[in-house]
Amino acid sequence: MSDVLLANVDRLAAEVPDGAKVAVFKAEGGCAAMAATAALIRRGVRDLHLVTVPTSGLQADMLIGAGCVATVETSGVTLSEYGQAPCFGRAVKAGTVRVIDSTCPAVYAGLQAGEKGIPFMPLRGLIGSDIVRHRDDYRVIDNPFAAADPIVALPAIVPDIALFHVPLADRFGNVWIGRHAELKVMAHAARKALVTCERLHDGNLLQDETLAPATISEMYIGGVAVAERGAWPYGVTGLYDDDADRFAAYAGMAKTEEGFVAWLEETVYGRAPAVAAE
């Protein structure tokens, strides 16, 4: 456990160096660390290699729009019922972000290789997809245990940082992930996880029989910051709902670069303390 336990989100964001390979979690369920994402944009992080686990929405779109991302490795970036992700679409078309197309189980399989410390993982499917044609890091190999059975080998994914939001963490740096078991794979594979939480748990999560199975040990955690409503405008299951108005506003504003800049001013820089006029 690092010395950034119980930092604020800006201190946590300072732990993400320029050029880092950062894994972020899908929008579903409120595990996207949006307050920390705003902090990353405020800090002006650059050249990230974003790995979406396995997809992303507003989080990846904002980081791309704000110029923080050099490469995005993804199975999908979408605002779901609010439409296509506008900054992602613009940046891919303009060539200002490098996109590495993947497929959801390939992201999980790569992370599983990462958490096992092995170089690759085989996965069914994929053969004949243009995803494979454009990925020079994938290999179609022969199943060593059977004849004439081609299978795709995927390299391990080892992010420098796994960044996500959870409902609960404790003072020891253990974090409770609820039903989102995929977060374990992501945290285990990464060199360290940086986590924001809604609130602190009294006591040790790993000593509670009911909470321990859905807890990631502090062994994997590089920093924790309390961020109440830290997934906003996403909701957190059981705590608060998606802010539908803000998503609709974003989908409208981010259609143009000017609108996106206005969104950042309101939503990202608006959170920072106002600078006194002199």
């Binding site: 396995p54 997809t55 993804t74 199975s75 999908g76 970036v77 979408t78 296509q84 992700a85 992602f88 679409g89 891919v92 078309k93 303009a94 060539g95 490098r98 996109v99 197309d101 993947s102 497929t103 959801c104 189980p105 390939a106 996965l123 069914r124 499917g125 994929l126 997809s129 243009d130 995803i131 454009h134």
Partner: peptide, 16 residues
Amino acid sequence: YPQQKVRWSGSFGSAY
């Protein structure tokens, strides 16, 4: 590809 005139979200789990 990848700089197509229209870019959608991505392939999700379809390739598997």
